[in-house]
Amino acid sequence: MQISFSGLRALVTGAGKGIGRDTVKALRDSGAQVVAVSRTKEDLVSLSKERPGIEPVCVDLGDWEATERALGNIGPIDLLVNNAAVLLEQPFLEVSKEAFDRTINVNLRSVIQVSQMVAKGMIARGVPGSIVNVSSIVSRAAIFCLTSYSSTKGAMDMLTKIMALELGPHKIRVNTVNPTVVLTHMGRRVTNHTELAKYLKERTPLNKFAEVEDVVNSILFLLSDKSAMTNGSGILVDGGYLAC
C-alpha cells in the first residue's frame, strides 16, 4: 500500500529517538515536510543529516512556557504525531511527586498543549487533519512498577476519544497506536528485566516484541486518507497480547 504525504506538513514530537525518529524519516520519505521536535539537540543534528530538509525544534515539552515559545508560531500543520514520552520506573508505594509530575507533563499535558495549537490552526485554515497519539498496551493491562507511565497512557486513550468527538466536526481525526514492548532504547529497559520480558513474550501469541517499523506503519496508516473513517479508535500493535 503506497501512501503519499506530498504537499502536507507534519509535526512529530519525541523525534530524536525510536518510534519518533523513524516516523520522521518515513514521513519525509513519503513526501511530507516535517517539523521534528526533541529535547536533545544532538539527536536533531544527526536526524537532520539523515533527512535533509526537516525542520528541527529543540524544546522540553514538559515545560509549558518553553513549548509555547517554540511552537506557538510553528505555522500550518496537517499531520501531528504526539510521541514524546518519559518512562520512570517506580513501584506504586514509592511513586514520587517529582516523577509523577514529570510523567504527566511530558506524556499527557504536552499532548493537550501541542494538539490545541495544531488543531486551532487547522480549524482556522478550514482544512482536514489527522492526529495520532502514541499510547501503549499498558493503558489497558497492568504491569509492575509503571504506575505513572501507565496512568498517562490510560488517560491518553480517553483524551483521544474526547479529541475525536470534539474535533471530528472540523474534519480532524484523532486516533492512537497502542504497541507492546518495542525494541527501542526505552523498550530495552523493559527487556532488561529478564523475568518480566519472558512473561510478556510468552503471553503474546506471536511470541515476539514489536519492531519500530511495525508501529511506524500503523502511524502512517492512521495519518493517511487510507483510514478516512477511523476516528477515536486505536490500533493494537501487540502481537495479540490483549487477546488473551
Rank of each mutant, 00 (worst) to 15 (best):
M1H: 06
G7K: 13
G7Q: 13
A10S: 12
A10I: 03
T13I: 09
G18I: 00
D22N: 01
V24S: 12
S30T: 12
G31L: 10
A36M: 10
V37R: 14
E42R: 15
L44E: 15
S46M: 11
E50S: 09
R51H: 05
P52T: 08
P52G: 14
I54H: 05
C58A: 14
D60Y: 01
E68L: 11
I74R: 15
L79T: 12
L80P: 01
N82T: 06
N83E: 11
A85F: 04
A85W: 02
L88Y: 01
K97V: 03
E98T: 05
T103R: 02
T103E: 01
V106P: 02
S115K: 08
A124L: 11
R125D: 04
S130I: 00
S130K: 00
S136A: 05
R140S: 12
A141E: 07
I143Y: 06
F144P: 05
L146R: 11
Y149W: 07
S150A: 15
T152N: 06
L159D: 11
K161R: 10
G168R: 08
N175W: 01
N175P: 00
N178I: 00
P179V: 00
L183G: 02
R188F: 05
R188L: 09
E195C: 03
E195M: 03
K198D: 15
K198A: 15
K198P: 05
Y199S: 10
L200N: 06
R203H: 13
R203V: 12
F209G: 01
D225S: 11
K226N: 10
S227V: 11
A228Q: 03
A228H: 06
A228M: 05
I235W: 00
L236A: 03
V237T: 01
G240V: 09
G240A: 04
